[in-house]
Amino acid sequence: MANGWSLIIGLAFIVIFCIVSWFAAPKGENQTVWRSTLILSAVACFLMWAITFLAQWHPLIVPRRLDLRPEHEPSRRF
């Protein structure tokens, strides 16, 4: 479902969003504020998401439980 292509799809989505917000930003004296705010927000959010996605794409460690009953816990370190 979610694999490496997600990054490309996400990027494409953000690029389209940026283009749309550049042209669809309300006209008037606040147009610049609208454009920069929408585009920068989109880019910042995408970066955050992409980094998180990448970090979990090929994880080097796996989760280990802490809350198991003692007989299931082979190596309790307390």
């Binding site: 796996v62 989760p63 280990r64 439980r65 299931h72 816990e73 082979p74």
Partner: peptide, 8 residues
Amino acid sequence: GTGPEAVR
């Protein structure tokens, strides 16, 4: 299905 380790 309780662990202690998870698989992907």
